[in-house]
């Protein structure tokens, strides 16, 4: 039987990566103030081409709307003005919470795999 499209391994991996992309974006910005292009490049270097660079921009817009990020526009000597993103206090709290949830999930999964390993 042909597997359902959304359950195929490559699709599942892409969905998983997309799912954690928000966490990745917040973690990248936690390293310091960055502009959109830099964030997209850093993430694409980490995640192979399955998650496209453009995916970052709607996430940045959403996180900004949710008040997790603040944006400041600054002039650049290398071209048009750049929009720098930084975590707000709310964003830092949310990131701590998300990282803790991820660590917990990771630990649980590792434990589960150790127990069920043949």
């Amino acid at each position: 039987m042909k597997p359902r499209k959304d359950l195929r391994p490559e699709k599942w991996t892409t969905q998983l990566r997309k799912g954690v992309l928000e966490l990745c974006v917040l973690n990248v910005i936690a390293t310091g103030r960055l502009y959109g292009y830099e964030i997209a490049k850093r993430l694409s270097a980490l995640s192979e081409p399955t998650v496209r660079e453009g995916t970052v921009y709607p996430i940045l817009s959403r996180l900004k709307q949710e008040g997790l990020l603040e944006a400041t526009i600054e002039a650049s000597s290398e071209g048009p003005p750049r929009k720098y993103f930084a975590l707000t206090a709310h964003g830092r709290r949310r990131l701590r919470h998300m990282n803790a949830a991820w660590d917990l999930l990771d630990d649980n999964l590792k434990t589960l795999r150790r127990r069920t390993a043949p």
């Binding site: 453009g54 921009y57 709607p58 940045l60 709307q65």
Partner: peptide, 22 residues
Amino acid sequence: SNAIDAHEVEHDVLGHIEQELS
């Protein structure tokens, strides 16, 4: 989409393209 500012994303994407082609 209520969660995303389309105009802002378009502006950011244009900036990205400009940077890539600089």
